[in-house]
């Protein structure tokens, strides 16, 4: 039987638990990505080339900072997540005191999602019309005012789309966290659906993942559209 409803009902508590674990991992990592990734993306943008490299009229043309931060961001992004996960065991052990479970998995998920989100933030900042920034410089605005009242509001819609993308890739990455017993829906799919040929769990988890991703995308798009005044 491809899908056994009674087996599904029987497994429901496990599915709920896995769902909670996924939420926990994604939630923690997303929070970290937002808190660190947003300023990092902003830093990448304001130290970047172009309008701001002319330090006199610009914000913070600092080539050195830009190159160093950019390099680190690229470095982390180029490591496959599964390797990052294992490589970060010592850090995880030191931070959490354990390398197993959803909270431990959140460490590597956070590390992976910070540069990912930072680049998305940088990209949405780059999409702001340079003229608007220039007009603000011409008006005599301070750097802080430009960041707070121009860059962040103008990039808001793009950043929300970036958050949506980050959440969705976190959901996907969190499946791999199952390798270290991180738990979550993806882990359930691998352990039951894949290793044990349990079609019911396979189908159930895949359907749940589809619903989660669709819901996040729809909600993200709706919010991004609602906040955009253009």
């Amino acid at each position: 039987m491809l899908f056994d409803p009674s087996h599904f009902t029987e497994m429901l508590p496990d599915i709920w638990k896995a769902f909670g674990q996924t939420l926990l991992m994604v939630g923690i990592s997303l929070a970290v990505a937002l808190v660190i990734g947003l300023p990092l993306g902003l830093l990448l943008f304001i130290t970047g080339k172009g309008l701001f490299s002319t330090s006199r009229s610009g914000l913070l043309g600092n080539r050195f900072v830009n190159v160093v931060v950019g390099f680190i961001v690229n470095l982390i992004r180029s490591i496959p997540y599964i390797i990052l996960l294992v490589a970060l065991f010592p850090v995880t052990k030191w931070l959490i005191g354990d390398t197993i479970g959803p909270i431990a998995a959140s460490v590597s998920l956070s590390v992976a999602s910070i540069p990912f989100f930072a680049r998305l933030v940088e990209t949405s900042l780059r999409e702001i019309d340079k003229g608007v920034i220039e007009a603000s410089i011409a008006v005599g605005a301070t750097r802080w005012m430009i960041i707070k009242d121009v860059l962040l509001p103008e990039a808001k819609s793009g950043v929300i789309q970036g958050i949506t993308m980050t959440i969705i890739s976190l959901v996907a990455y969190s499946a791999m966290a199952g390798i270290i017993g991180g738990g979550g829906i993806g882990d359930l799919a691998i352990r039951f659906g894949y290793y044990r040929y349990d079609n019911t769990i396979m189908i159930a988890t895949v359907v749940i993942l589809i619903i989660i991703v669709q819901a996040i995308q729809l909600a993200g798009d709706a919010i991004a559209k609602a906040v955009d005044k253009r």
């Binding site: 019309d129 003229g131 005599g140 009242d149 509001p153």
Partner: peptide, 19 residues
């Protein structure tokens, strides 16, 4: 080059904040 995410009033106020 107005700030698209701010109202007309806020756009003008922005210049005043600078001062």
């Amino acid at each position: 080059y107005l700030i698209s995410q701010k109202t007309v009033g806020e756009n003008i106020e922005f210049a005043l904040k600078a001062a």
